[in-house]
Each structure stands twice: as structure tokens, then as C-alpha cells.
């Protein structure tokens, strides 16, 4: 196993569209372990996408289970994830392992439905909301060569109604 360096903007590999995974083999699972280890090596990230360590394949890991009082599905390894439904909009603040020392507001869907495969090629399906849905949208953006920088809303005039606590 190995911890990989995280690519940071403006590395152009972060702007590539990643390719779907075809082979759900031991190589894939070994890579997932390395991606996992790399994510945990960093400062409190709740997700990571394969292209962030230079592998342009459609694979993300998300785990928001350390956040209190939110709905979540625990530790998720999602291969070829695809959002099939979006509902609602919310502004939230995001940062990224690939963009050190900057956070900003981004509009995301409040609720999503998502299809994906697990590490063995078994189909998965989830309905997510809030923070977990935001994390998934952030990661899937990486697979499409997008960073949260591409979606920033104005610092000053983002008077969206946020979800009240």
C-alpha cells in the first residue's frame, strides 16, 4: 500500500474527464485501498476521487460518518457513480484537498438519487441529502474534470435561503 501525493490545482490532470471502470478485479481493489489510505492521511477530508491522485477512473470514496447529527450511509466506495435525480438547492461552503487554503460557497442539489457499483461490480443505489449529497456531488465533479472553483458563487451576494438548523 502507498500514500499518493494529492494533485493540486492548476495540475491539468484535475481537468480531465475520467473513464468508467470496466474491470472489477484485484487491481481495482488494491487501488481503492491506496486511495483510502491517501484520503485518511490528509487533514479531515470526507471524500476523495481517483483523479485527485492522478488516476483518471470513475471512482470516489465518501465517508461523512464523523459529522454529528446528519443522515448518511457510512463509508462508501462508489465505482462509476451516476446521479440520476436532483432535488432542491442549497448553498454550502466547500474546500478541497486539491485547492489548499481556500474555501468558498457553492450551490448544490439538496437531495440526490445515485446509482453506482461496488468494488466487485455489484450495483448500488442510494438516496442522499444534505452534507452527504454535497460530498458526492463534489467528488463526482472531480470525475468530470470540475473543481468547486468552477462553481463558486459570489461571496457577497449569495442570499440563498439556507436550510435552517
Amino acid at each position: 500500500m502507498a500514500i499518493h501525493p494529492i494533485l493540486t490545482y492548476p495540475n491539468q490532470q484535475l481537468k480531465q474527464v475520467s473513464q468508467p471502470v470496466d474491470n472489477f478485479d484485484h487491481n481495482l481493489r488494491a487501488f481503492i485501498d491506496e486511495l483510502q489510505e491517501t484520503m485518511h492521511d490528509g487533514p479531515g477530508a470526507v471524500g476523495i476521487a481517483a483523479p485527485q491522485i492522478g488516476h483518471a477512473i470513475r471512482l470516489v470514496i465518501v465517508d461523512v460518518s464523523n459529522k454529528k447529527k446528519i443522515k448518511h450511509h457510512g463509508h462508501l466506495v462508489l465505482v462509476n457513480p451516476e446521479i440520476v435525480e436532483w432535488q432542491g438547492l442549497a448553498v454550502g461552503r466547500e474546500g478541497c484537498l486539491s485547492v489548499p487554503d481556500f474555501t468558498g460557497n457553492v450551490v448544490r442539489a439538496e437531495r440526490i438519487k445515485l446509482n453506482a457499483f461496488d468494488a466487485y461490480g455489484e450495483p448500488l443505489s442510494f438516496e442522499m441529502e444534505g452534507y452527504e449529497a454535497r460530498a458526492l456531488q463534489h467528488e463526482i465533479d472531480h470525475l468530470d474534470g470540475l473543481l468547486f472553483l468552477d462553481r463558486l458563487v459570489s461571496r457577497r451576494n449569495d442570499l440563498f435561503e439556507r436550510k435552517k438548523r
Binding site: 477530508a45 470526507v46 474546500g95
Partner: peptide, 11 residues
């Protein structure tokens, strides 16, 4: 007056 938590997502 509204007071809202900002939960910054780092991913």
C-alpha cells in the same frame, strides 16, 4: 437575525 452553522466540506 439568523445564526447558521457553516459546515465546511473538505473533499
Amino acid at each position: 437575525i439568523s445564526v447558521q452553522a457553516i459546515e465546511t466540506l473538505i473533499a
